[in-house]
Structure formats: structure tokens, C-alpha cells
């Protein structure tokens, strides 16, 4: 009688192990590759035998990679701040006030999150050039709002809707202005939701490639994903894989750390964005 449960428990744990290996192995392999140089790079190892930081050093010497990281951080932080400001205000109207056209407005905002980024590429290019923001980080901040805003508005509206009505009723009767209601009553309660949505918007902006590739021109204005995509050696066969892996590890580590710390919040945010409604 006791054999069957043991076998199935073993099978279950093997499944868990397989899932973890599948998810983690490529990143693990990038880390061990990034620590190898010279001919070791072209020998397949399954375990880390070499601990050489040479690739990390040359990465910063051969190109403005430090600058690229700074660019990515700047753009992502600005996008998060602007998105949260705009959407916290809007979410109040969309969740707490019943006005005509609210459903239509929410529907339109959701539709914007669905359309492909490339559909606006030529119009956005023209606009960014007209604003003098071509090859400028502010141009990217502006363009990124097209995909962060629908998401942050949607999630914050979902969260704000769930706060009890009594909270503001008392304040309204006391004649407190809506501005004070939002900033003094709702925002403090919404901090967890703001952290989650901010984080998800940050990851979206940090990872974005199409706009960053199209709207920047010079190496010193590039963000990290573009820099990594364009790292190249003399020819197709001389790609500096050590440097590429080192760069990949560097840009992934902060995101992975954030994800590990905030995993519960992230899952809550993702499901609020996609499932509720």
C-alpha cells in the first residue's frame, strides 16, 4: 500500500525539479560562460570551473556600457514616476466617480494596451523628431508611456475600486476637496499597489527594445537592451560571447533580485492586470 504514494511523490518531486532546471538553467549557463575567457569559452562546461571577471572589465572598457546602464535606469525611473502620477489621479475618477462614458473610457484604455507598438512607429518617429527628442532619452520616456499608462491605469483602478466607500463618504461630508481625498486618504492606502505597478512598469521600460532601437542613434544614448543586441566583433563568427554573457548577467541581475523580493506582489499585480475585470 505504501509503495504507490512513494512513487507518485517521487514523480512529483522530479516534476518540480524539472521545472526549476528548465527555468533556471539558461541563466545559470550565461553566468558560468561570463566567467570564462580565451579558449575556455569554447569548451562546453556544465559546472563553473573558471572564475575570471575579465569579461566584466572589458565590457566597460570597450564601450560606454556604464553610460548605457545609467540611460536605462534614467528612462525607466522617469517612466514609472510619470505613469504613476498620471494614473493615480485618473484611477480615482475611474474607480470612485460614476460618470457617463466611464466604461467606454476604460475600454478604450484597454484597447490601447492591445495594439502593437509597431503600428505607431512612423507617426511616433515624426512626433519625436518634431519635438526635437530624436536620439534623446526624453523621447524614449515619452514613447514608453504608450505601453505603461494603460497598464498602470488599469491596475490602480482595479485596486482603488476595492477600497471601502465609507473612507471618502466621511471626508466628502466634511467638505474635504477631492485632491486632498486622493493624496491624503487613497494614496497612503494604495502604497502596496503603487509599488507593484511601479515595479511592473519599470520592468517593461527596462526591457523595451523596438522604440529604443529606432529612436536612438549614437552609442551614448542607447539603453542596455539595444547595447546588448548590437555588441559585435569583427565578423559573425567572432562574436564576443564572453562580453555578451557578462552584459546579459548584469542587466538581468537587478530585475531578478527585484522579482525575488517582490514575487508575491508581482503575481498579485499581474493577475489584477489580466484577470480581474
Amino acid at each position: 500500500m505504501s509503495r504507490a504514494p512513494t512513487v507518485s511523490a517521487l514523480g512529483f518531486h522530479l516534476a518540480v525539479l524539472a521545472i526549476v532546471l528548465y527555468a533556471v538553467f539558461p541563466f545559470y549557463y550565461a553566468v558560468i560562460t561570463s566567467l570564462k575567457t580565451g579558449s575556455a569559452l569554447f569548451r562546453v562546461d556544465y559546472f563553473p570551473f573558471s572564475w575570471d571577471l575579465h569579461n566584466y572589465v572589458t565590457l566597460f572598457q570597450q564601450q560606454p556600457f556604464g553610460r548605457n546602464i545609467l540611460n536605462s535606469v534614467t528612462v525607466a525611473v522617469l517612466v514609472v514616476v510619470v505613469s504613476l502620477l498620471l494614473s493615480a489621479l485618473a484611477a480615482y475618477s475611474l474607480s470612485r466617480v460614476a460618470f457617463r462614458g466611464r466604461g467606454l473610457l476604460l475600454g478604450t484604455i484597454l484597447t490601447v494596451s492591445m495594439f502593437p507598438q509597431v503600428a505607431v512607429l512612423s507617426g511616433m518617429f515624426e512626433l519625436i523628431r518634431a519635438l526635437g527628442l530624436y536620439n534623446n532619452l526624453l523621447g524614449l520616456v515619452f514613447a514608453y508611456l504608450i505601453f505603461t499608462l494603460p497598464f498602470t491605469v488599469w491596475v490602480l483602478t482595479t485596486f482603488m475600486r476595492e477600497l471601502p466607500k465609507e473612507l471618502e463618504e466621511a471626508a466628502i461630508l466634511d467638505g474635504v476637496s477631492p485632491w486632498t481625498i486622493v493624496t491624503r486618504i487613497f494614496l497612503p492606502l494604495l502604497w502596496p499597489a503603487m509599488v507593484t505597478t511601479g515595479l511592473l512598469a519599470f520592468i517593461q521600460a527596462w526591457n523595451e527594445f523596438l522604440f529604443a532601437l529606432t529612436f536612438t542613434l549614437t552609442d551614448d544614448q542607447r539603453t542596455v537592451p539595444v547595447a546588448i543586441a548590437l555588441i559585435s566583433g569583427g565578423s559573425r563568427y567572432e562574436l564576443p560571447w564572453g562580453n555578451i554573457m557578462a552584459a546579459s548577467v548584469l542587466v538581468t541581475v537587478p530585475v531578478v533580485v527585484l522579482v525575488l523580493i517582490f514575487q508575491r506582489r508581482i503575481i498579485a499585480g499581474l493577475t489584477a492586470g489580466a484577470l480581474k475585470g
Binding site: 549557463y29 550565461a30 560562460t33 543586441a229 555578451i244 546579459s248 538581468t252 525575488l260 514575487q263
Partner: peptide, 22 residues
């Protein structure tokens, strides 16, 4: 395990393309 499963999602697409290319 749940955190580990989130890793591929968190890795930028460009980076996962390079890692898999390698």
C-alpha cells in the same frame, strides 16, 4: 520554486535571445 519560475519572464527578451543564441 515559484520565484525560480519567474526568472525567464523577468529576463529581457533581447538577453534571452542572446543566451539562447549561445
Amino acid at each position: 520554486v515559484r520565484a525560480a519560475v519567474l526568472i525567464p519572464w523577468a529576463i529581457p527578451t533581447v538577453v534571452s535571445a542572446q543566451i539562447w543564441g549561445w
